[in-house]
Amino acid sequence: MGEKPTRSVIATNRRARHQYAVLDTVEAGVMLVGTEVKSLRLGRVSLVDAFATIDDGEVWLRGLHISEYALGTWTNHTPRRVRKLLLNRREIDRWDIRIRESGLSIVPLSMYFSDGRAKVELALVRGKKTWDKRADIATRDANREIERAFSRHVKGRRR
């Protein structure tokens, strides 16, 4: 039996699931320079403003902020440089068609190390309207209240 790949999460984009409806996800590799990897290992990354674009059949990650490595020298990287993502041609073409037809976007949901390689979980998303966000919050609150009531019932308490 093959071993499961180890996966250590570096950063997550929690706002993305609130602001967008996730339609599809895919794992992509990231082309990085040496000091970027060292900053990632220290967890100094922000996915808040990041998004991906498809230009000339290649996927580029824009707006990702990886802080400069404190012990880096003149070889240090630029924090918000554009980074190339590594995906299969079939996946790129499939997502490119969907983006052009229906006006969807690509945003990163999380960044992690998988067997020592930096990976990004990308999502094909559609923006939520304000009422969608309120409905999600109401559903989450209702489920939380149901769990509390069930927990009280199992423990034999009343209220």
Results as ranks from 00 to 15, higher is better:
2 G>V: 07
5 P>I: 01
5 P>T: 00
8 S>C: 10
14 R>I: 12
15 R>H: 11
17 R>Q: 14
18 H>Y: 11
18 H>A: 15
19 Q>Y: 03
20 Y>W: 10
21 A>I: 10
21 A>H: 14
21 A>E: 14
21 A>S: 13
22 V>I: 01
23 L>N: 00
24 D>N: 02
24 D>L: 09
25 T>L: 07
26 V>K: 02
28 A>M: 01
28 A>R: 05
31 M>E: 15
32 L>N: 01
35 T>I: 02
35 T>F: 08
37 V>R: 04
40 L>I: 04
40 L>D: 07
40 L>C: 04
42 L>Y: 07
42 L>W: 11
42 L>G: 07
44 R>N: 08
45 V>R: 00
49 D>H: 01
49 D>P: 00
51 F>C: 13
52 A>H: 00
53 T>I: 08
54 I>S: 05
55 D>Q: 09
55 D>I: 01
59 V>K: 02
60 W>V: 08
61 L>M: 07
61 L>C: 06
62 R>M: 09
62 R>W: 06
64 L>H: 03
67 S>R: 10
67 S>I: 02
69 Y>Q: 07
71 L>R: 13
71 L>V: 07
71 L>F: 15
73 T>S: 15
77 H>G: 04
77 H>A: 02
79 P>C: 06
79 P>A: 02
79 P>K: 05
81 R>S: 08
82 V>Y: 04
84 K>R: 14
86 L>V: 01
89 R>D: 13
89 R>M: 06
90 R>G: 11
92 I>H: 04
92 I>Y: 04
96 D>I: 08
98 R>S: 12
100 R>G: 07
101 E>F: 05
102 S>I: 13
103 G>S: 02
103 G>Y: 03
106 I>F: 05
107 V>T: 00
111 M>Q: 08
114 S>C: 14
115 D>C: 09
115 D>N: 08
116 G>Y: 09
121 E>Y: 05
121 E>F: 00
122 L>R: 03
123 A>Y: 01
125 V>P: 05
125 V>C: 06
127 G>H: 15
128 K>A: 09
130 T>M: 10
131 W>N: 14
133 K>P: 04
134 R>H: 12
135 A>R: 13
138 A>H: 00
140 R>W: 07
142 A>E: 07
142 A>Q: 04
146 I>C: 11
147 E>M: 11
149 A>Q: 13
150 F>L: 15
153 H>F: 15
154 V>T: 02
154 V>L: 09
154 V>Y: 08
158 R>W: 10
158 R>V: 08
